[in-house]
Design a binder for these strands. Structure first.
Lengths: 256, 256
DNA sequence: CGTGAGTTTGATACCCCTCAATAAAGGTGG
DNA sequence: CCACCTTTATTGAGGGGTATCAAACTCACG
């Protein structure tokens, strides 16, 4: 079995780290590291490293909030459980992301490890104190929040689409974009989350997610090497599907 | 015709103003003003007041971004136009809100005035300079961004629901919550946006929005006084609908 | 190697989208 | 202030896409 880079602890770690696409400068859509070495060193004084195994709950919606988290490696999902038990995933989070959003001292979402996770745990009291002292640090946090706001808006736009294939195609594009940052050049796409998680993220039933992925494979747009590993064959088609108003093209398989 | 508070300029204005639900303290879900008098005075030095008539475009998606805006009065929508012409509304914004989110120097959404709007226009260069100097000011901005992040997540959760009535019921609850802040006690609900706007916000066709609202009226859950003015009669039922897994209750009208 | 969770596939029903026509509201100029 | 026109909203009929239910299947894990 091939080593999964996501599960590897990054070699020498130098403190909390956040990345975002720039607000004002052009940087070709690339996420850049926002904290300086000194800022990371400062923050590591108040942070501790925590690890979660795949499937572990990190915190629950409405829990008293004590800390925010900064992912070093692994994938986390934040989600909200509806009164009718349905689960809505608000975000998938990756290395260099922050999570632990609060309202009136309580977490607004639940958080669970999708893969094995290593993260910094930063107590909010200490964090607030540091922030209020350091305007530059705060500015970087603002940039990161704007980044997450944009991503959440993209998620909302995805959810607004009324076409299953368009949703799934867009989801794959989003995953690809995240992994394009620190990934090898092989265009190997990781889908660490379950089909059910994808369904709860794109707002469809898991069966329809499964069918849509199958359709993408039949049309030779993506090629699955196992359930959680894929390779995008036709970016053009994927783009088209993501934008498609209606009128799906026929499959290539209609036999004589 | 009753005066519409939304169109009235607030009497004496003392500079930019943002409100949010607290991150850590309990405040009973009420939005509180974040800027101090001094901060508002400072910001008014770099801000100018701008007005837009109902329907005016404020900026376009992908435009070079020169400023962010802070609403004094009126309602704004930010939206994204898809390649297939479909329009997705990412947010409705009200007094004490900020808008003008950018990525690499360009606006990520378009913005249009839903009603007549008065707002502060704050040039980003000057804003950044001010922010980098004043850690307290920045901290307040962080609180506001967290607030908008939570709201966007709620929007995403709404979009994830697969039931038309649940979506519309939730939308009405959200509107109510916004207006509960600075509104009179009469529980009079304003729907300043068109049915089409609502549809583009909740991710359904405008016909289905219309039908859903009609259903709410038939069931005596809301009472419409004109198309843009309503009153909520049964909060309990609304809550139930917003959470409903399935199995709509029957109408009260089945005649013998 | 067996077990069970996770996934794929199939059949059916139903909710919502689409198209189309009517009705109401808002705006304009006489 | 009313008639007119345009825009926006409501209502209806019909078809399609997706949810749902159910069963077979695969894979990961112990």
């Amino acid at each position: 079995m091939p080593r999964n880079h996501i599960d590897d602890p990054l070699p020498p770690v130098h403190g909390p780290s956040i990345a975002a696409v720039a607000l004002w400068d052009s940087s070709d859509r690339k996420r850049t590291q926002l904290f300086s070495h000194e800022e990371r060193a400062q923050l590591s004084l108040i942070a501790s490293i925590v690890r979660f195994k795949k499937g572990n709950q990190i915190y629950h919606q409405a829990d008293q909030a004590g800390a925010v988290f900064n992912i070093i490696s692994g994938v986390v999902k934040t989600y909200r459980t509806m009164p009718d038990k349905a689960e809505h995933i608000t975000a998938f989070l990756f290395a260099d992301d922050l999570f632990g959003l609060t309202e009136e001292g309580r977490y607004v979402n639940s958080a669970k490890a999708v893969t094995a996770v290593t993260a910094y745990r930063i107590p909010i009291a200490a964090l607030e104190a540091r922030l209020r002292k350091d305007a530059t640090l705060e500015f970087h946090v603002i940039c990161k929040l704007c980044h997450q706001l944009r991503e959440t808006q993209r998620h909302a736009v995805l959810l607004g689409r009324r076409n299953a294939l368009a949703k799934v195609a867009t989801f794959i594009q989003m995953l690809e974009q995240v992994q394009a940052a620190g990934d090898e050049s092989t265009r190997e796409l990781n889908l660490p989350m379950s089909r059910s998680d994808i369904a709860d993220y794109v707002g469809m039933s898991l069966e329809t997610v499964s069918r849509s992925l199958r359709t993408l494979e039949r049309r030779r747009i993506v090629d699955f090497r196992g359930r959680h590993q894929a390779r995008i064959l036709d970016h053009r088609q994927l783009e088209t599907l993501a934008a498609r108003p209606e009128g799906d093209a026929d499959d290539g398989i209609v036999g004589p």
